[in-house]
Simulated assay, not measured.
Amino acid sequence: MLEGIIIKGIGGFYYVKVGDRIYECRARGLFRKNKIIPLVGDRVLIKINKEDNTGYVEEIYDRTTELIRPPVANVNQAVIVFAVKKPDPNLWLLDRFLLLASYQGLDAIICINKSDLDVDGEIDNIYDIYKKAGYQIIKTSCTNRIGIDELKRQLKDKITVFAGPSGVGKSTLLNNIQSNLKLQTGEISQKTSRGKHTTRHVELIELDSGGWVVDTPGFSTLDIDFIKEDELIKYFIEVYDRSSLCRFSGCSHNKEPGCEVKKAVEEREISQSRYDNYLSMLQEVKDIRRY
């Protein structure tokens, strides 16, 4: 049997890359019986039919991670891409993406794209907010080739999912990292300043410099209804770290006296936007549990 990785799955067929070859495979009936669905990113053993070089997936190795939306296995990290302009950055949405990446057990890198459009210092404001929160941030511009090599180094030997709003330049970034990809890029709607979705199915793309990227719209749902009220704070790193100093162990960091989190916000050690987004999501989770 041969060992490979599933790079694409369409209509019950799984395309497995082994070395320089790709084999079209079906899954053994045993998987269906046990309700196991092979996923893009799975490391597998396949058995080849020598008559037509098709194969069967015989075994799936244990997964390190398993995303539901998009359905892909063994992802190591998420690159959350936002543009400094066109469309304007939405930090509430960025915090939601970061929360989901953390919940899925992925390392997160924030990529602030279209840095060449920054004329009012907005990129530095965003950088300072998330650097204080402990995130790794890369400033990029495909127009000026800024940060492209740094981003490429971060992708080496990893399986990476790109996420973020449409129109921020995810496909353009990948095309600049590896010019022969020729991924379809979307245009920004003049009426809404939103991008148009261009990626339709999940597929792994191998990079010449090492590693794989998931060609997908990223996290296709941003619901947080599965997160418990007392767990939410763990996904706001700087809020969680400071909360241990609060006077009351059950402090919700909203209206309680002696709250060290509120003090840190007042002293600008925690950004107001991150704090507001935490409270907003906390209320959302409470409302979900109430109903």
Rank of each mutant, 00 (worst) to 15 (best):
G186K: 08
E238H: 15
I10W: 04
L282W: 05
L183Y: 03
I146E: 10
Y130S: 11
K50R: 10
I227D: 05
I36A: 14
S220D: 06
G105E: 07
Y135W: 10
Y61V: 02
R289I: 14
H253Y: 08
Y240T: 03
R289V: 11
S193I: 07
Y14R: 06
R145F: 09
K131Y: 01
S243W: 09
R63A: 00
E260S: 13
N144E: 13
K182N: 08
L117T: 03
G210H: 02
L94P: 00
N176Y: 12
K47C: 10
L100D: 03
V72W: 04
I22W: 04
I146A: 10
H253A: 08
V239W: 03
I22V: 15
I37S: 13
K255H: 12
G4L: 05
F226A: 10
G195I: 12
Q178R: 10
S179A: 13
I137E: 00
Q178Y: 02
S166Y: 04
G167E: 06
A27S: 11
D223V: 14
R26V: 03
S166F: 07
D287S: 09
G134K: 13
G134I: 05
L245E: 04
V84I: 15
D287Y: 08
N175K: 11
G164P: 05
V213E: 01
N144H: 14
V202T: 15
T185D: 05
K86E: 10
T143L: 15
A163G: 01
I129V: 08
I37K: 14
N176W: 02
R63E: 00
R32L: 10
L282M: 10
A78L: 07
R69N: 08
V119G: 01
G186F: 02
I188V: 14
L207Y: 03
T172D: 01
L245M: 12
I188K: 11
N90F: 04
D287Q: 14
D118Q: 11
P71T: 09
V168W: 11
L245Y: 11
H253F: 08
L99Y: 05
F82Q: 07
T54Y: 05
V285I: 14
S244R: 12
S193D: 05
L245A: 10
E206F: 09
L99T: 12
I227T: 09
Q283E: 09
L100I: 15
R28I: 09
L155A: 03
R200S: 13
Y56L: 13
K262Y: 00
S280D: 02
H201T: 12
I233D: 06
D42Y: 06
K156Q: 12
L117H: 00
A264V: 01
R69D: 00
V261D: 07
S244C: 07
Q154S: 13
S141Y: 01
I68W: 07
L98F: 02
K85I: 06
V44P: 05
K191V: 00
T54A: 09
V214Y: 04
G147N: 13
C251S: 05
Q190D: 01
G169E: 06
S209E: 08
E269K: 15
R153M: 11
V239I: 15
K139M: 11
G258L: 10
I159T: 15
E150F: 07
F236I: 12
A73D: 01
I159K: 13
R63F: 00
N254C: 07
R194K: 15
Y14Q: 04
N277Y: 01
Q104E: 06
Y23D: 06
G211M: 01
T221P: 03
L282R: 14
E260A: 15
C25P: 01
D52S: 14
V265G: 10
L222T: 06
I137T: 01
